[in-house]
Simulated scan of single mutants.
Amino acid sequence: MPPNTDEDGPTPADTLVERVHDLAAGGPRVVLGIAGCPGAGKSTLAHWLADRLTATGLPAVWVPMDGFHLADVELERLGRRHRKGAPDTFDARGYLALLRRLHTETGTVVYAPSFDRDLEQPLAGAIPVPPEARVVVSEGNYLLLPQDPWPLVRAAMTEVWYADLDDRVRLDRLVRRHIRFGKAPEAADRWVAEVDELNAAAIRATRHTADLVLDTAALPLTPR
């Protein structure tokens, strides 16, 4: 796949696309993971990359890990609603089962769940992954965690990249996102400080284990 070229040569974005083309060359379906702290631009990067790969002749689908959030009714039952987004508020083994299906069930459509930010709830069967999809791009906070079952999740992925972003930009973006989806400013600040940043500390500690570390500010991304 020839990259876009100009006087300055390939851009960082071109290099990423070319890397995935190389991973997919003549082999099985690629399942690419993107990890990173809340607000670092994981979903924006995953969505952009899937679109860019498809445009360059490598059909790709974005499948977010957020579709495996436990529903609020279950979080209430478990007493975890106040820290929604922590590792144990996801159906990690359900996510693992889907990743394994995406590797093996390549002759039929596999349906994956999505996450509706307006409802703040997962939606079952919302994302079709057709047989012709050569790449699945999936993003989530905890893809590199060492605690069970996350190492199995990583093993089900071809590579895992880490999306990095300056904390000042990331935290401002995160607070604004919480406000946009219904939290009062004070509640958004408190949630980021007391929930998101506790999770971010564990995620940040896994950064060095990624196959590739990316500064999302250096890519042509429009925050979602």
Rank of each mutant, 00 (worst) to 15 (best):
A92C: 05
I127S: 10
R176M: 01
V153G: 05
L98R: 02
A210G: 07
R101T: 09
A35R: 06
H47I: 13
G182M: 07
D189I: 04
L123S: 08
T15V: 11
H21A: 07
G94C: 11
H69S: 10
A163F: 00
L165F: 04
E18S: 13
C37F: 05
M1H: 15
T158Y: 06
P3K: 00
F115V: 01
A163L: 00
M1S: 14
A201D: 15
I34K: 02
A126N: 02
Y95K: 05
P87R: 02
Y142P: 04
V135Y: 03
R100Y: 02
W48A: 09
R177W: 14
H47Y: 08
A55G: 10
T209I: 03
D172G: 14
D22F: 08
E194T: 15
S43L: 14
P3L: 01
P149K: 10
A35N: 07
F181V: 12
H178P: 08
P146E: 13
A201P: 08
P128M: 11
A50H: 04
G125R: 14
H69E: 02
W191D: 13
A201Q: 14
D189Y: 03
R83D: 04
T5D: 09
H21M: 04
V192N: 09
G79L: 06
R154K: 11
V192M: 04
N199L: 07
D72W: 01
A13W: 02
D66R: 13
L123Y: 04
R101K: 12
W48V: 02
V153K: 05
E194I: 06
T15Y: 08
D22E: 01
D211A: 13
L102K: 10
G79N: 09
A156T: 03
A187V: 13
A55C: 10
V136I: 13
R101A: 12
Y95E: 09
R190K: 14
G125Q: 14
H82T: 00
L214S: 03
P131T: 15
T56A: 14
A60K: 10
A24H: 08
A40V: 04
R80G: 05
W161Q: 08
I127T: 09
R117F: 10
R168F: 00
R173E: 00
D196R: 09
L102N: 00
E186C: 09
P128L: 12
M157H: 14
A188Q: 09
A187Q: 15
K183H: 13
T106Y: 00
A40W: 02
G33R: 12
G182C: 10
D211I: 13
